[in-house]
């Protein structure tokens, strides 16, 4: 059976890199392309990181498209304080040789959605939603052709991370996030409420290393680099694991539970800009626009990740 067609829109980032590896390791998923956006670090480095990751996985046939270098209507905010200068500090990669496609990521997204049968292509967003938001503005006709958007964004009970109320992906481009949420496309939101349960304990990272694969070891080393910031901030025994949760959701949605509710984004606030307003208790009267995930089977998630990382070089 051919795999489910996905485009991964991403700003690697260590956890983005691990998510990409997980997708490339999974036969259920047919990765049509990686579309790159500025976020965790600048576009130059996120593109470079994506190239390194496909080379590490020996999957250089997966095309890489450079997307937007800035959010729609505010200056770019990056997170080198978490991810290091390259976004994927923690592993020594060789300089990549795989080319970047000449087509812009936004145009690739539009072209692919128009070319593929309606309802076939899923968008997985691991970064700020600028590329998707821009594609919806350029070509609103693509919206009903998207099967689903699985997005790493949002927070209900965890507060924000980049600000007291804003999670990073929403905060960096709130206008794009709100465009996507109001697009009518089916959305599965994988928020901090999920990713803050998925703690990368040393035991779990060691299990990745024990796969004996280069990719498993790299995944563990990457997460061990970026966790330092969170370990100090939260004082927990292990750090949250964000982006791979979106891929695990595609592989095993039965590991997650949530509610179909309305989520909006504060785009124009004094202190709330970039906050997801999550109507978990359905008090707003607004129509549901996403499946908001709140619970996850964490041991099963890590077991699945370890099993898949073992399939890579």
């Amino acid at each position: 059976m051919p795999g489910r067609k996905i485009i991964i829109d991403t700003d690697p980032g260590q956890d983005d890199a691990v998510a990409i590896l997980l997708a490339l390791a999974s036969a259920e998923l047919d990765v049509l392309g990686l579309t790159i956006v500025a976020g965790n670090v600048s576009l130059h480095y996120t593109v470079e990181a994506a190239r390194k990751v496909v080379e590490l996985a020996e999957r250089t046939e997966v095309p890489i498209y450079a997307g937007c270098s800035r959010p729609i209507s505010k200056p770019l905010v990056t997170a080198e304080h978490v991810h290091g200068a390259t976004g994927i500090d923690g592993v020594d990669f060789a300089d990549p040789t795989v080319p970047v496609q000449s087509e812009h990521a936004v145009d690739f997204i539009i072209r692919t959605l128009r070319a593929e049968p309606a309802g076939d292509v899923t968008l997985v967003t691991l970064g700020p939603l600028t590329n998707i938001g821009l594609a919806l503005v350029k070509a609103p006709d693509i919206a009903p052709r998207v099967r689903e958007i699985v997005a790493i964004m949002g927070s209900l009970h965890q507060g924000g991370n980049i600000t007291p109320l804003g999670d990073f992906n929403t905060y960096v481009d709130p206008e794009a996030a709100d465009l996507v949420l109001q697009s009518g496309i089916p959305i599965v939101m994988v928020p901090m409420d999920i990713t803050h349960q998925v703690l990368n304990t040393r035991e779990r990272l060691d299990a990745w290393r024990a796969t004996g694969t280069r990719c498993g070891a790299a995944a563990a080393d990457l997460m061990q680099f970026s966790e330092a910031f969170d370990l100090e901030k939260y004082g927990w025994g292990a750090a949250p694991l964000h982006d791979p949760c979106a891929i695990v959701y595609l592989l095993a949605p039965e590991l997650f539970s949530g509610r179909t509710i309305n989520v909006r984004v504060s785009t124009d606030g004094t202190v709330s800009t970039g906050m997801t307003v999550v109507d978990w208790w359905r008090v707003s009267g607004r129509e549901p626009n996403c499946d908001y995930l709140l619970e996850v089977d964490v041991p099963a998630l890590y077991d699945l990740m370890t099993e898949r990382l073992a399939l890579l070089p």
Binding site: K233, D268, G269, S272
Partner: peptide, 24 residues
């Protein structure tokens, strides 16, 4: 903590921004 109030954005009106993790 620092606690501040949203007074402009309609969807978040009256939300308290609580800097529990001291990120500001």
């Amino acid at each position: 903590v620092s606690i501040r109030v949203e007074t402009v954005s309609e969807v978040a009106m009256g939300t308290t921004s609580v800097d529990w993790w001291h990120v500001t």
